[in-house]
Structures are given as structure tokens and as C-alpha cells.
């Protein structure tokens, strides 16, 4: 095995060149390049963290804006429904009043019409009685040959009408 057989011969050279080249790697790569690369990584991580924080803040702001908006919306909606309720109540009251007014006037008209109707019925009744009395007078004269005066005939008709009712 040359690694062991040659040790006495090569150890100084191996050690010397290892010291030089590993030393160079340590200085140039380890202490020269590595911190810069790591700094880039750290800067990127910091940037990402900062961006995330900004985004989080923006989201919080958007959330609060939405909350405000929703509150304002709720308020105006409540206001609108209150106004609508009031208007409805007012309208209902107005309608009720006008209905009452209309009711009164219709009742008055109805009473007048009923009175008129009663008058007409009374007149018609009197007329019917008069016509019936006349007809009864004629019938008695034709059938019995009796002459009944108007007063007796009317009384008889009235009695018959009252009985027939």
C-alpha cells in the first residue's frame, strides 16, 4: 500500500502542499467568497420577510377598510329601512284617513239613497193602492153591479194588502 509504504518519503511534500492549497481554499473560498454568498442569501431572506410583512400590513389595512365599508353599509341600510318604515307608517295613516273619509261620504250617500228608495217605495205603494182600489171599484161595479165609493174600496184594498203581506 503506497499510502503507508511511501509515508517517510512523501509526508513533508504532502503536508506542505496541503497546507498551501487547503490554506488557499480556506482563505479564498471559506473566508473570501462564502460570507458574501451567505450575505446574499441573508439579504434575500430579509427582503422576503420584509415583503411578507408589507403584504401582511396591506392585508390588515384592506381588512379594516372592508370592515369600515361594511359598517357604513349596515348603517345606511338601517337608516334606509327606518325611513322606509316611517314612510310606510305615514302612508298607512294617510290611507286610513282617506278610507275613513271615503267611508263616511259613501255612508252618507248610501243613507240618502236608502231614504230615496223608501220614499219611492212608499209612493209606489200608494200608487199601487190607488190603482188597486180603482180596479176593485171597477170589478165590483162590473160583477156585482154595485157602486162602491172610493173610500170603501181603498179600505178594502188596504186590508187585503195588509193580510197578503
Amino acid at each position: 500500500m503506497p499510502q503507508i509504504a511511501q509515508i517517510g518519503e512523501i509526508y513533508a511534500s504532502q503536508l506542505f502542499w496541503l497546507a498551501i492549497f487547503f490554506g488557499l481554499i480556506l482563505i479564498v473560498v471559506g473566508y473570501g467568497m462564502l460570507p458574501k454568498i451567505q450575505a446574499t442569501v441573508d439579504a434575500r431572506d430579509a427582503k422576503i420577510a420584509a415583503d411578507l410583512k408589507t403584504a401582511e400590513e396591506a392585508r390588515a389595512r384592506a381588512d379594516s377598510l372592508e370592515e369600515d365599508y361594511r359598517a357604513a353599509l349596515d348603517k345606511s341600510r338601517a337608516e334606509a329601512s327606518r325611513l322606509a318604515g316611517e314612510a310606510k307608517a305615514t302612508a298607512a295613516k294617510k290611507t286610513e284617513a282617506s278610507v275613513k273619509r271615503a267611508d263616511a261620504s259613501i255612508g252618507k250617500k248610501l243613507d240618502a239613497a236608502a231614504a230615496e228608495l223608501a220614499d219611492a217605495r212608499k209612493a209606489a205603494m200608494a200608487e199601487i193602492e190607488a190603482v188597486a182600489a180603482e180596479a176593485a171599484q171597477d170589478m165590483v161595479a162590473k160583477i156585482a153591479g154595485l157602486t162602491v165609493d172610493k173610500k170603501t174600496a181603498s179600505a178594502a184594498v188596504a186590508a187585503a194588502l195588509a193580510k197578503g203581506k
Binding site: I10, L18, F21, F22, I25, M33, I37
Partner: peptide
């Protein structure tokens, strides 16, 4: 001490150069 530039030293040098080039890409 006797310190000739051996094939071992040459591959150490190669390791250094390749590693340096590799790291250069990350700079």
C-alpha cells in the same frame, strides 16, 4: 524538507481551481 510538486499536489491544485470556479458562479 524535501517538497517536490507531486501528482498529489497537482490534484490538490485542481481541486482548488475547480472549487474556485464553482464558487465563482455563485458570486
Amino acid at each position: 524538507y524535501h517538497v517536490p510538486f507531486t501528482n498529489s499536489a497537482a490534484w490538490m491544485l485542481l481541486t482548488l481551481v475547480v472549487l474556485w470556479l464553482f464558487m465563482l458562479g455563485g458570486m
